[in-house]
């Protein structure tokens, strides 16, 4: 199949970017979206042009790095998939595909389709951790956790931090990401010691980074490659209210 691409090209953080047209020729419907870009880049390199920069690593839907906005959707039209899991059979021969980087003030473009997602790292550093003693591996069943609790925690822990929630949200809010992390740890006994401090610190850092506020459009959950459910956001609100109610700070 042959495709017309309109790709956002931006030299560096401070440069003014623009859309550049490329032709992707003789693409197999079985190639992944990233492989299609590889083919286009091969051609660019042959012609002595600068290849399109995009983030990618595992190419099996678990690292969360291949973030790009494809025809108005985060990670393209496939539901519950990262860009690497999107295949060219989702498109028709002769289609025009517009490829843009994630757009959020907190995710500045570094180059072409690559954005700086270190804001997520700083949110995690603010509270997305537990304190445990290192040393020998603990006995497997020393801490009893019911299966349903464990499963709901793992559902939240499935978040890969790709930033599709921010990209798809009309408010560029990172609420789904932060909520997934807060819910994951709040649902397990290991997360309890820092429970109140964690939610306060992570929300404060999220605001500091310049992400928007959640207005419950649910776009994040619909576009999430790991299909993190909206109930984690409700849980973050409950955790936040609880932490405020329990805080020793003066009213």
């Amino acid at each position: 199949m042959n495709l017309h691409l309109k790709v956002w090209r931006q030299k560096n953080k401070n440069a003014k970017g623009k859309f550049v047209d490329y032709e992707a020729k003789d693409i197999s419907t079985d190639t992944s979206f990233l492989e299609m870009l590889d083919v286009v880049n091969e051609e660019l390199i042959k012609k002595g042009e600068e290849p399109i920069a995009f983030d990618h690593d595992c190419r099996e839907g678990i690292c969360g790095s291949c973030g790009m906005y494809i025809n108005g959707r985060a990670h393209g039209p496939q539901v519950g998939a990262a860009t690497c899991q999107l295949h060219m059979r989702s498109f028709k021969d002769g289609d025009t595909i517009v490829i843009e980087p994630w757009r959020a003030k907190a995710f500045p473009v570094i180059k072409d389709l690559v954005v700086d997602r270190s804001a997520f790292d700083r949110i995690m550093a603010a509270g997305g951790f537990i304190s445990v003693n290192t040393g020998g591996a603990p006995d497997a069943n020393a801490l009893p956790i019911p299966k349903d609790v464990q499963e709901s925690a793992i559902d939240a822990a499935a978040c890969i931090g790709c930033g599709a929630c921010v990209a798809a949200c009309k408010n560029a809010s990172s609420m789904l990401f932060v909520s997934a992390k807060v819910a994951h740890l709040a649902r397990l006994p290991q997360g309890k010691p820092e429970r109140e401090k964690r939610v306060m610190a992570m929300v404060a850092q999220m605001e500091e980074e310049g992400f928007g506020a959640c207005t419950n459009t649910e776009a994040c959950s619909a576009e999430c490659p790991k299909e993190i459910p909206m109930d984690v956001i409700a849980q973050l609100r409950r955790e936040y209210i609880r932490a405020f109610a329990k805080s020793e700070e003066k009213v």
Binding site: K6, G72, R73, A168, K170, S173, E218, A219, A222
Partner: peptide, 30 residues
């Protein structure tokens, strides 16, 4: 204030955006 803060958080708008695929019209029309 929420609306303005959330507009600022996006910064640069998308050239092509298809929010009807992931959210209701009502939620974006508030």
């Amino acid at each position: 204030r929420l609306w303005w803060g959330n507009r600022v958080a996006r910064g640069f708008s998308y050239k092509v955006n298809d929010p009807s695929e992931n959210s209701t019209f009502f939620s974006r029309f508030m």
